[in-house]
Design a protein around this nucleic acid. Structure first.
Lengths: 153, 153
DNA sequence: GTAACTGCAAAAACTTTGCTGAGTT
DNA sequence: AACTCAGCAAAGTTTTTGCAGTTAC
């Protein structure tokens, strides 16, 4: 029987999810579980439509509207984050561990970036009533591909 | 005659804008100037539609499509940034000085936040080909208003 | 049994596009 | 004069909504 660290993490997240649902008096539907699980497992930052395509194979009656409703609910619970997306659709991220983003100002791709030093940044104390919960560093610039293209000038 | 720091800043930005347009071989149209100016003067982070409403009074023939085209052009030139918006439309910011954002995970408002200590964060060296241009800290949490509401639980 | 939720289809909101006449250099 | 651009209207995407039947508790 395998129990990799990732599997343990997944289980913990799902378990927390179920608890939070109960707390909030929400039903635990297979759709919600599947969507949330897919989001946790995703290494990229899927758009609603991308999630739809991933979850639907195992749940053929799923509808895109349910994805939107679920994502909205999860975001309200603080279980997923909406990312600074651009161009096309919104992007979602269920990775709530401290992590940061490299965003390309040219093609608008967003890549995760882990850095212990950045993780250590503490939110400033005096934010005028704003209650900080997480600090997130966005590094704007050119991704490797776009940097190469830009060179031509 | 008044010449506040803000007025000087505005002029400098407009002047830079005109230079960049010339460099890029772009026409300097009244529409672009007005849109860019409105964006510099804005204290909030207007959506395309909000900009439209602000600029149109002084330019009744302006169309929303022009706003979109202009914003797209400006973003491509690196003169404005698109913000992590949510729910409705995209939001734009022409404040390219280093500054940071407080984003409310509940109502999705985004407020500017200035902090010299955060400004001092240097982009990490090794980003695997990614060419960093600016570091931007997003502090997620609850804004004063939402924090008050949340209390009820 | 009751409250909450999904799926569907239709509507709304937001954004992009092609074209033509007008403006900028 | 040449090139770029604004305005218009139409098309394309993305997101939201209402409702009826279904499911979770």
């Amino acid at each position: 029987m395998k129990s990799s660290p990732e599997a343990a993490y997944l289980e913990a997240r799902l378990s927390e999810f179920m608890d939070r649902c109960r707390e909030a008096g929400m039903n635990l539907t297979p759709q919600r579980l599947a969507i949330y699980r897919s989001l946790i497992e995703a290494k990229d930052h899927p758009s609603p439509e991308a999630l739809f395509d991933r979850v639907r194979p195992g749940m053929p009656t799923l509808s895109l509207a349910t994805i939107y409703k679920t994502l909205d609910t999860l975001a309200g619970m603080g279980l997923v984050t909406e990312l600074p997306a651009r161009g096309d659709a919104k992007r979602y991220d269920a990775n709530m561990e401290p992590h940061h983003h490299l965003v390309c100002t040219q093609c608008n791709k967003v890549a995760d970036y882990h850095d212990a030093q950045l993780d250590g940044i503490a939110p400033p104390k005096n934010l005028g009533g704003f209650r900080a919960r997480q600090v997130n560093v966005h590094i704007h610039g050119l991704c490797a591909e776009c940097a190469r293209t830009e060179k031509t000038h």
